[in-house]
Write a protein that binds this DNA or RNA. Sequence first.
DNA 1: TCTTGACTTAAAGTTAACTTTAACTTGTAA
DNA 2: TTACAAGTTAAAGTTAACTTTAAGTCAAGA
Lengths: 157, 157
Amino acid sequence: MYTIGEVSKMVNLPIPTLRYYDNEGLLTNIERDSSGIRKFNDKTLESLRVIECLKKSGMQIKEIKEFMKWCSLGDQTIAKRKEMFIRQKEHIEQEIKELEMALAMIKFKCWYYDEALKDGTEKRVKKLDPNDMPEEIKQLFEHTHQPYRKESITKLI
Amino acid sequence: MYTIGEVSKMVNLPIPTLRYYDNEGLLTNIERDSSGIRKFNDKTLESLRVIECLKKSGMQIKEIKEFMKWCSLGDQTIAKRKEMFIRQKEHIEQEIKELEMALAMIKFKCWYYDEALKDGTEKRVKKLDPNDMPEEIKQLFEHTHQPYRKESITKLI
DNA sequence: TCTTGACTTAAAGTTAACTTTAACTTGTAA
DNA sequence: TTACAAGTTAAAGTTAACTTTAAGTCAAGA
């Protein structure tokens, strides 16, 4: 059994956030001692692990609350819960793809500004043809600078 | 040259969002025609691409605004801009790592609920020893269920 | 007995990034 | 000349997920 302060330190979440999660129904079956103090246990810690993961996967608090309710309803909600995790798996995979796209752009910009810094000016690198870039950088450029319209030429900023 | 409606369709952002970005100083040098209508160009499109990428990397609007100001100050801000991209690269790499951790947990849960669905109950899979899980699933489990305290046994929910 | 630290509550406040509203202008087509 | 579509503004509203505040309880140590 743990107090709210102990759990706060273990999972690295502020105490008011834990109370907020409890009030919102994300933590089921939190016991209280005779004077009303919350007694958390290892099941709470596992719940918090799952809550963090579902939040990362893009779920809102109220959706996580629903999931927790399903958990408490037992075996009759297994199919629902499985489908939910499949949806969140797809969601997070899409999010990772988008972040990797953004990362490619950022890596290109790191190279770009490194070149500009060596020159002391953006002049040369700004009008460089992709074919004159190192192969790896050219790949990053082409991956991230697909034109919005076929006729337009992608410009750097 | 494009109108706000054309840009909205091209980059798939609502018109008020483009106006908001303009008002916040994220889009520099937006020209207007004689009756005050914004005239966007290919440089705007490239700015919007960079804005999306910086937002994905965790930057706030006001920080992006600062970056755009640096861009307009020219070569004297190259070092600053490079350092900013290096910071954002680290930030996004960390974020991808965290999302991959969450994904591992979700993949484990997909397997878990698939087993439970086959059994019609969580009973068996809930108390399964990691050593009796398929190797791949055991890896996911151990990667995502490190105990908060060494003495505690990780429980599923 | 008094102070301290850790807990409790309900309710109000915060923040970022939009989003909506209401009122207006302008250029073209019927 | 009237209607419509697409643009304009300033200002108010929305939303989620906390976070802070104010007031109180309770057990242990000096």
